[in-house]
Design a protein around this nucleic acid. Structure first.
Lengths: 112, 112
DNA sequence: TGGAGAGATCGACGGCTATCGATGGAATGG
DNA sequence: CCATTCCATCGATAGCCGTCGATCTCTCCA
């Protein structure tokens, strides 16, 4: 086997081709940022495994965080399009979004 | 079909079971945080598609960012265990890490 | 041996974010 | 109509992060 590194001369650097479209990158990054938090990743895991929608008060009971913080994290997941919310009386029920990009769905299948 | 939301009484919230081990969560979050940046995600995409190691000077030429910033991003990927580096003369060549967790490999297959 | 190029590190700065307490709005029940 | 409960939002604060210029180290070559 040969050396793995290609030949090169000083002062000459050629940019590699960008394999991904800019819009796709930003879209992926938005989802990744939403998932790149321990609390939110666990929230998504719980929702993905739950057959029924989960009341957000149960998350408040599950995590050692204040109620506004839990609400804030869930809002992040909502803004990223990962979860849907439905109100029932004084309660708010969250579930995994029904219309997930196939790429996002595959991501969650790997992660949680 | 019945109502989707379970019955509930006021003042009673039961925490749902945590589906993932804490260590697994933190490990995934570390990788997700490394990928949750447009520059780094594109870097990984370029490395994944490249048969040969890529000189970091080519990344500096590709992105509209300063050389320290490119070096900083690559260091983040290194710390997350996503890339390997090999020095050759005055140049530094990066490639996708050979020993990737199966989960991480699957993640990259979905993303890039 | 000294100059030049490549790359990592340092220090600083601005912006984003996770967190909290306090507040406000909506629905429920007395 | 009022108290209670749930939940979202607001305002503030501390810590993290992306970015840069400056600097340092290392290698190569004239």
């Amino acid at each position: 086997m040969k050396s793995a590194v290609p030949d090169r001369v000083k002062g000459v650097c050629s940019p590699p081709a960008m394999p991904m479209a800019l819009a796709k990158v930003d879209q992926s990054v938005e989802v990744l940022k939403a998932l790149a938090d321990p609390t939110r990743l666990q929230m998504v895991g719980i929702l993905k495994r739950s057959a029924e929608p989960v009341c957000i008060c149960d998350f408040t009971a599950a995590f050692d965080l204040s109620q506004p913080t839990i609400s804030h994290h869930m809002a992040k997941l909502r803004e990223a399009g990962l979860v849907d919310v439905s109100k029932a009386g004084i309660w708010a029920y969250y579930r995994l979004a029904s219309r997930l990009e196939p790429k996002t769905r595959a991501l969650l299948d790997v992660l949680v």
